[in-house]
Structure formats: structure tokens, C-alpha cells
Nucleic acid binder design. Sequence first.
DNA 1: ATTTGTGAACATGTTCACAGCT
DNA 2: AGCTGTGAACATGTTCACAAAT
Lengths: 230, 230
Amino acid sequence: MSTFPRKISDSTVRRSSLYLRVLEALELEGSDTVSSRVLAERVGATAAQVRKDLSLFGTFGTRGLGYEVTALRERLAEILGLSHEWPVALVGAGRIGSALFEYPNFRERGFQIVAILDSDPRKVGQSWDGIEIHSTRELERTIERLGVEIALLAVPASVAQGVADHLVESGVRGILNFAPTRLRVPPGVAVNEVDLALELETLSFVLEGGGRDGNPAPEDVAAGPEGESR
Amino acid sequence: MSTFPRKISDSTVRRSSLYLRVLEALELEGSDTVSSRVLAERVGATAAQVRKDLSLFGTFGTRGLGYEVTALRERLAEILGLSHEWPVALVGAGRIGSALFEYPNFRERGFQIVAILDSDPRKVGQSWDGIEIHSTRELERTIERLGVEIALLAVPASVAQGVADHLVESGVRGILNFAPTRLRVPPGVAVNEVDLALELETLSFVLEGGGRDGNPAPEDVAAGPEGESR
DNA sequence: ATTTGTGAACATGTTCACAGCT
DNA sequence: AGCTGTGAACATGTTCACAAAT
């Protein structure tokens, strides 16, 4: 439905997810409107950045007033594809898979794990919270039957590419990959890599002295804060 | 020891971690030298990018020949701070903490979990693989005693900031944060956020039609421009 | 008075293209 | 000839600053 003029940058999308969270919190706190400045403060960005980001999606604010919290929250959720549930497949029922399965934030945001797949015969047939673990031999059938378009890939690196190919063939268009391998996927398929060792390595690089400053100094910090929470 | 001329960008550091992995693989495969082109192919970057990245750290290559695999591997590991072990604390012994504890790639890369901390009295006193879970009341003592500088923060979002403050006070300078909250830390402390729900949201954004193309086409990939989705 | 929306200025990161070394 | 190292060109993302709206 909504297609946007330019290509929206990844950073804008990521920040928009954060805006959405803040808007949800503000709604609970009973705020009707919010300014770009306040939004910026809560996510650690600048007010100009917030306005620029939002302006890429359309015109939501009222000059002199700010943004209407509920309206913006709804619109952002829609833009991010969060106004409906996403059936998600979990592939790999090991330690990481298990942690992902239990991760409460997924379901809260509309990502429902509706299928679990594993190649280990000892795991196949088990149920987690009422969801049976299927063999990866039934991957295609399962994915198709449940209309899964997003998969959490938590298998060993050595088999990740093969499983990913299989997922794509079955109709999956988005993969969140936890295996430390760069996946090759055809155009039209989105992959996000979560590479934990790499994250630690960027920390050790900084600690070892690589970065000139370990923390880009929290900008202002001088201007008097006003959002007194209580 | 080694301090670099400019500030090295985050993207360069992340790619360098990938180069290091490829170099390790090449070493096992018995390659003596490697060109920027081959290195690039294996990590999904361009040859120019590889050369530029490496040149920020120094001059390692030989014109006409390429890079000596072992020498570059050693130097990169050193630069990334991986030439020695890092004692790491795991804070939060829930599902995610448990998965992190078992994650084999950490130890392989020199990150040793030497302490586990949790506030749940039922968990305190248990041992995982010989490592006793301590109360967060003993956080400072434990961190200091073991010389921990890097922490994995896997606690609920509601307490993450408080625990982070405590960690920093105790001497931690790098935090890998799994709680979906933006941590505020003083200058000199590095934080990496691993925000799983956010990763899924960037996928759903693309799938919903937000991005013009779900997959920025893996560079060259021979001739095959204008990838049309499915 | 306040706060948005946005072009223009700026900063940062990536690619090009080629001189220079082996 | 082959391949690196790098300035210059380019592309992308961020910040500034101000006109426009309420």
C-alpha cells in the first residue's frame, strides 16, 4: 500500500522502531502530544533527526504543537509492518533457539512463533509450549501451510546457508540469522545478521585502544532536562 | 599500544572482524597469501573497501602479491584486541543468559565467562559448568576481583540501567546489552546494543513494502542487475 | 511563542582510478 | 603483469537554520 518516495535508510527504520516504543510508553503515561525534542531525548537522538526521519514517511506533526501521540503511534506501527501479526518460524531448537522461543518481546510486537523446526531426531516430536518440533524434512510443507514469511535461523554455521536456501525456496522473505556466516540470498529476500561474537569484538577493539573515545559523549547533557518522571 | 591516526569507523571494525575469520579459514586451507579481491569476495565487500579498511590500520600488503595470510591474521587479531583472553561477566542468568553462556563462539574468540551474576535468590548458589552464580549484591567485589572489563547484560529492561551503572562503577568499560533499552553510560564506556525485536521490525518493514528492494543485491554477482522480486 | 518540515551545509563512508611497488 | 595504497570523486547520512504554520 504505502510506498515511499526515496529509499528509507536502515538507520531511519531502526530509529523509527525506537520512536514507536517511546510513543507507546507516552501513550500509557497519558501524553496527547509530543515534540520532536522530547522524542529525541528519549531515544538518544537529536530533534532535527527525529523530524527528518518522520518527514520521510509523510507529514504527521502540527507546527507549534508537535505530534499527536496516538495517531503517530498507529501510523508508525503501520509503516513498520506491525499492524498485523507475523507468523514466524524458528529453525534450530538448540540453546539459542530456546532462548528466542521464550523471548517475550517478539510476541508482544506481533511476531508469533508458529513453527519450530530442527534436524535432530531426538528433538523432533517434542513440544514447546504446545508447539510441536517438526523435522527440517517437513520444512517446506510447514512454512507453506502456515504462511510463514519470516524465519529465525538459529542453526550451526556449517548448515546455515543450506537451510536458508531451503527457507527461501519455501517462500520465506525475511531471515534473522544468528549463525556467524554471511548468508547469500536472492534479491527480494531480506537478511539481518545477529553476530554475537562480532559484537564483542567491536567492544574489545575499543577497549584495546582502537577507538579514540569509547563513548561518543552524550551530546548536550547541559541543557536543563524537563521531563521529570516520577 | 597501537593507536591509530584517525578514528576508525564502526563499519571498518565490523568488517575487520569478518576479514579475520576469513583469514583464519584461509590459514587452515593452507593459503600463504590472499588478495584484496578474494578477501572481499568471501565477506561480501569490494576489493577497494578491503584495501581501504586495512590501510587505516597500517601497511600490510605487498604490491603485486597481496597480503600474507598469517601475518595479517596475527596483526588483525592484535588490533581487534583478540590476542589475549578477556574475562567476561554474564549478568542475568535467565533464558538469554543461559544461551549466551553456552554460546561456543565466545570462548573460541577469547571471551571467557568467568562470573555469573543474578538477583534471583533461587539462582544464586547454583553452578553452571563449574561457575557459581553470585548475587548481584556481590557484583562490585566479583567484577573487581576477576578484573572483568566486559559484561554481557541480559537482565530485564526495567533494571538494565541500574545494573549498568553498577557495572560501570565497578570498572566495566564495555557492555553488550541485550535489554531493549538505550543505556546511558559515561564517556569512556562502550555499549553495543543487541535489540532482537528491533531486528525483526526492520525485516517486517522491508516485507511490508517499505524498502524499495528487500535485498541490496550482493554486489557484483556476475551479470544480474535489476533483481526482480520472486 | 512554539515547533514542524526542509533545503542547504556539513560530515562521514564508499567507490573509482591510477600511480607506484614487486 | 599483478596488486596494493590512496587521493579524488561520489554517495549517503546528519545537522543547521529558518520559513511556515498554528
